[in-house]
Amino acid sequence: MRLNIALFGVAREIVGQSSLEIETAAGQSAQGLLAELHARYPALANLSSLAVAVNNEYAADDTPLHERDEIALIPPVSGG
């Protein structure tokens, strides 16, 4: 399946673009997606944290992803 991933802040700068299309196995989990992205962009591993959001909610490691989901990478937030 093909996922479209929105990127923000330092994650956007590491990848060098504001969104990313990635071809991955059907039923891929949030944790599995992070592992694939770490392999492609090793600098992501230097971040204090990196979460996956699915449809505006933080995803658990085992949350399955779907093509229709709105997926985003969430580096450490720093609002306020």
């Binding site: 923000f8 959001a53 933080y58 985003a72 969430i74 937030v77 609002g79 306020g80």
Partner: peptide, 14 residues
């Protein structure tokens, strides 16, 4: 509210 905002809300500051 402000403490939790700083932990979870998807806003980034450079």
């Amino acid at each position: 509210i402000i403490d939790t905002l700083k932990q979870v809300v998807t806003i980034w500051k450079k």
